[in-house]
């Protein structure tokens, strides 16, 4: 696992967004659940998720940032990413920073 602190509030909000996009129960989305390999997300789902994350957290997410992140995510990758492989620690910091404003 990782030494980085996982923000439970952000995790919960991201899990809810993923659940609403994929229309699955929140309980199916664990910290290490792979969005593509395990939940069957497709590129159009990731694009929608990006739109929703940008709106929810009022941040800008770069083109293909989620797609690339999710594609490369494996269970061994939790040191770098969490929440279905789409949230990097760097992104969590950006989300938290925005929340603090």
């Amino acid at each position: 696992m990782t030494d980085y602190p996982l923000d439970p509030a952000i995790l919960e909000r991201v899990q809810k967004l993923i659940a609403s996009v994929l229309r699955i129960p929140v309980a199916k989305i664990g910290v290490t659940t792979a969005l593509i390999a395990e939940l069957g997300a497709e590129s159009i789902d990731l694009l929608e998720l990006r739109f929703m994350l940008e709106k929810e957290f009022e941040v800008k997410i770069a083109d293909r940032e989620l797609q690339e992140s999710a594609k490369k995510f494996t269970q061994d990758d939790i040191a770098n990413k969490f929440c279905a492989g789409i949230i990097t620690w760097d992104m969590q910091e950006r989300l938290k920073h925005r929340e603090a404003l």
Partner: peptide, 19 residues
């Protein structure tokens, strides 16, 4: 324009809505 390029019956509800 943005949408799900796939056979009609493979399109999921969220993908249909976004399209």
């Amino acid at each position: 324009a943005l949408g799900a390029f796939k056979p009609l019956l493979d399109v999921k509800a969220n993908q249909w809505d976004l399209t």
